[in-house]
Design a protein around this nucleic acid. Structure first.
Lengths: 151, 151
DNA sequence: ATATAACGGTTGCAAACTAAAACCACAAGA
DNA sequence: TCTTGTGGTTTTAGTTTGCAACCGTTATAT
């Protein structure tokens, strides 16, 4: 199911996650899960994807520990798919994706959905990367150091 | 090339970006670009993917305005691939992906590369979503509202 | 000048994956 | 009983992927 990255035994911190969520549909399923969708049919209706694909994706997400199946919530004899802690950990990533999308994929006046905080109903802030001392960091202010060099 | 999301004319703020970067390799190419790689051969050596695939991905990323081709930097007659502003806008997403990966895909004592700020060589902070007033927001503290309801 | 190798791809083809549609099992309702 | 809805699996066709081979151009060596 995974794309079987072959050339390295151990994947880096960016590649490993991609093995779990690096396909088109998985993140959309996860986004819908954050929106409260739980049932097979709900996902299918929302995303409009083929049922076999949805079935495979859900199975894969469960196998990766991102979703969990719970027996039922109402009386129905079916199972539901809920985010695990690991799955909920994807929230910042989803926000980053959304903010990037709004920045570059929508015209300046094109309407789009907005992420607001429930308490005040105001749009959320932008995600910002900061140093330990609070300085905001751009990409060029950072670097990646190998594990041995942790001192 | 895109997976051709068919069921809706207009993709949402999460789906549109996925059309551009929602495949396994693109984000890895972009990460390498953030690390300073610019040449076809550099990407290929780093990622170990087939040349035709790399060729297609680079072309797609250029078509999506994430990479740009510049004639040369040293004397060589070839082109180089550099991140556009849009491409650099993916930095938070990449950080989110990396942090999630480190949280859930590495054992507690498993060594991994670390993202540090160049000035102090200390690990960066976690990405945090905050409300306008600075409150930290979890997923369940937020909701998505449709464009009409912007008041 | 000629051969050789490296770079930056393109092309062909087999294997793997994706997806549309049909089908199946079960339960509830008419 | 017959039909409908849910939650899938199977079948089959179409697309994508990736390995390998090849091509044209440019450096390097002879």
């Amino acid at each position: 199911m995974a794309k079987r990255i072959s050339h390295k035994g151990s994947l880096c911190g960016v590649a490993r996650p991609l093995d779990a969520i690096g396909d088109w549909w998985s993140l959309l399923i996860i986004r819908d899960a954050f929106d409260g969708l739980r049932r097979f049919g709900e996902f299918q209706k929302s995303l409009g994807l083929a049922k076999n694909i949805l079935s495979a994706r859900l199975r894969s997400l469960v196998a990766h520990g991102i979703l969990d199946t719970v027996p039922a919530s109402d009386g129905s004899p079916y199972q539901e798919y809920v985010l695990t802690q690991k799955g909920r950990g994807l929230f910042p990533l989803l926000v980053a994706l959304r903010q990037w999308g709004e920045d570059f994929f929508f015209g300046p006046n094109e309407p789009h959905v907005m992420l607001v905080d429930k308490a005040k109903h105001l749009p959320v802030r932008r995600l910002e990367l900061r140093a330990q001392d609070g300085r905001m960091l751009m990409a060029e202010d950072t670097e990646v150091i190998p594990p041995a060099q942790v001192d």
